[in-house]
Design a protein around this nucleic acid. Structure first.
Lengths: 353, 353
DNA sequence: ACAGCCGTAGCAAGCGCTTTCTATAAGGTA
DNA sequence: TACCTTATAGAAAGCGCTTGCTACGGCTGT
């Protein structure tokens, strides 16, 4: 029923060892022999048994990419870039670095994150890329550190992309972190420069690094401008989705009717915020300025075009992919910070009057 | 270094067979023994060797989900739903149906599609879900049919989601196809009912089933309304992205200055179309009505809210996941068509004058 | 009280491949 | 011509797990 290496060997009149070597291309095989083997492979339509191969070689060609929300382009772009870098590298033959880059959706759940890591560990994955913000729960951080250390010890490359280095396993992983703090700061500085003083902030889930860093940047800017007073009430937390932006903005408008600007945790949230502002009969940016974060592709097409902070998601994902493959040297100390650039567009303007 | 089953067995003072059975829970083991084994597993921090397990059992817990573009929420939503259905099913213990649901990004490339299928075949995947439109190239169809048949023969469940049944391997796979034709027809009927007669169409790539079906629906509606004449010139093909919508719309406007409506291949394309219309100094829907397809989450937030055709992406993905798991009975004949619902919103209105 | 069962656990044979070590045939050198 | 490289192929020992079959107490039934 199933064609095995031995079948191919028999047909090519060589030993199984030779077939294996032809397929893996890591040992000299005479050209004529190789050709005979390759022909047999084709004729029998042979497909390597991955598990058997992985078991014998004690390695696998699986690369896992963990994302918090696969339906969010923020992750899709990074994951796609990484996958391209990993899967598309080979052009010559059938043999060689055929990696299976796969993305796993944790849905933001710490349990699923750990579960996926265990599953990948089971498979003896060649590499693992963790994307997006991390949870700041101490228990979970400890569990993750332990897990990642174990993975790294087993030879799995671990790369963090868009996620700050994890305390406790710093040495074993490469980390590409976005400058969320700096981006957040510049965004709010932009608003302050326009003259805004009453600025609402729709933050992401409280326990995520991304959320905290962006918010910190925001506050740093505010403090530097001396707008420190009534801070608490003008910040609302919620998930990174459209609906959260909508509801939080309504809430902010209720709390502070004199609001002149809303900064959202990301572009998706900003879209919800825009909808809320409009549904209140207010105009953007005439009555309220709105800003996002990430600069996802749709942001430039929003009406009005969304002021936001551009993160080089594709480039970061690609680099993470290369790091995972060992194609690119890790940054000094294993840690690199990726710049975030302010994109001032039409959704922000000086406050009325 | 690495902890193996035998180590656990030794520590628990049982045979390896017993440990295996405890872990797999498919054979009676006395409660006291089980507990002893479980304790040893914990103490040694044992992680099953996936490849070895798969090899011995001749099955794997990998489920592959192929998508054309991972950065597109259209696929993200379906894939996420499927993954939830597959990965999230187990709540009780550590053992049992722990499947590793992973998504693979083909980027729309037929080679990569085949490559991923081979890779999954290597891993003896438990199931494979193919999402989104298929390429209509005969060579590729034949290759896919052969591959999928082989996969199915090897015991892999094959499910198509948002993709019409493949000729030649009909019996081996379950197929959930969207009613793209019907949706396309109803959308254009809506525009016709509003009074539009000069309707431009920004189609997707010519060789995809999705593209063809939506376009066919459009033409059926047009023909039924007697608007058959100058059809060709009012259709432009391009990729399923924002930019294509922008450029194609500019082109359409150039070709037919009397255009009163533009139908886009999907919502993302529609967003580009809207941008183009606006950049020409025209208003939506005052001067030009614009419609999309898919009803992605952002469509309702567009300004004006986008008229589109709603596809139950989440439900379809979840169902595909269940089909792949064997949790749900396949539809009669293995084929189900999923309804598409018109969502008439503010981006379409009667033509001026 | 003895045969026959049921419930558990162990033995041992692989699963299909990789890889170390060994064998052999050329080819080169003295 | 005899000996030593070099290039290439084969033999065989696992990799760590699953599972069919066997073994062995303790019960039940008559």
């Amino acid at each position: 029923m199933t064609v095995t290496l031995a079948d191919v060997a028999a047909r090519a009149r060589v030993s199984p060892a030779t077939v294996s070597r032809v397929l893996n291309g890591n040992y000299p095989v005479a050209a004529s022999t190789r050709e005979r083997v390759l022909r047999a492979v084709d004729e029998l339509d042979y497909v390597l048994n991955g598990p058997a191969s992985s078991l014998a070689a004690a390695t696998s060609d699986l690369v896992g990419i963990l994302v918090n929300d696969i339906a969010d382009p923020f992750f899709g772009i990074m994951a796609g870039a990484a996958q391209t870098e990993i899967g598309g590298q080979e052009g010559t033959g059938r043999a060689g670095g055929e990696k299976l880059a796969v993305v796993c959706n944790t849905g933001g759940s710490p349990e699923r994150e750990l579960t996926y890591l265990t599953l990948l560990q089971r498979q003896r994955a060649a590499a693992v890329i963790l994307t997006g913000g991390a949870l700041e729960d101490p228990t979970h951080i400890a569990a993750m550190s332990a897990k990642l250390t174990k993975l790294a010890d087993a030879g799995t490359h671990v790369v963090l992309c868009g996620r700050p280095p994890l305390p406790g396993s710093s040495a074993v992983v490469a980390s590409l972190a976005f400058d969320n703090r700096g981006g957040g700061r510049r965004l709010t500085e932009h608003l302050l420069a326009l003259g805004h003083r009453r600025i609402g902030y729709v933050a992401g889930p409280a326990e995520r690094t991304t959320t905290r860093h962006r918010l910190e940047g925001h506050r740093v800017a505010l403090t530097a401008a001396g707008v420190t007073d009534d801070q608490g009430p003008l910040t609302v937390h919620g998930p990174y989705d459209r609906r959260s932006g909508y509801e939080a903005t309504l809430e902010l408008l209720r709390r502070a009717p004199d609001l002149t600007a809303v900064v959202a945790a990301n572009d998706t949230v900003a879209l919800g915020a825009c909808a809320a502002v409009r549904d209140q009969g207010l105009s953007i940016p005439g009555d309220i300025s709105v800003a996002g974060f990430d600069d996802l592709p749709f942001s430039v097409d929003a009406v009005p075009a969304l002021t936001t902070v551009r993160l080089p998601l594709y480039e970061a994902g690609a680099r993470a992919g290369r790091l995972a493959m060992g194609t690119e040297a890790p940054p000094p100390g294993g840690i690199a910070t990726i710049a975030a650039e302010l994109m001032a567009r039409a959704s922000t303007a000086p406050p009325r009057g």
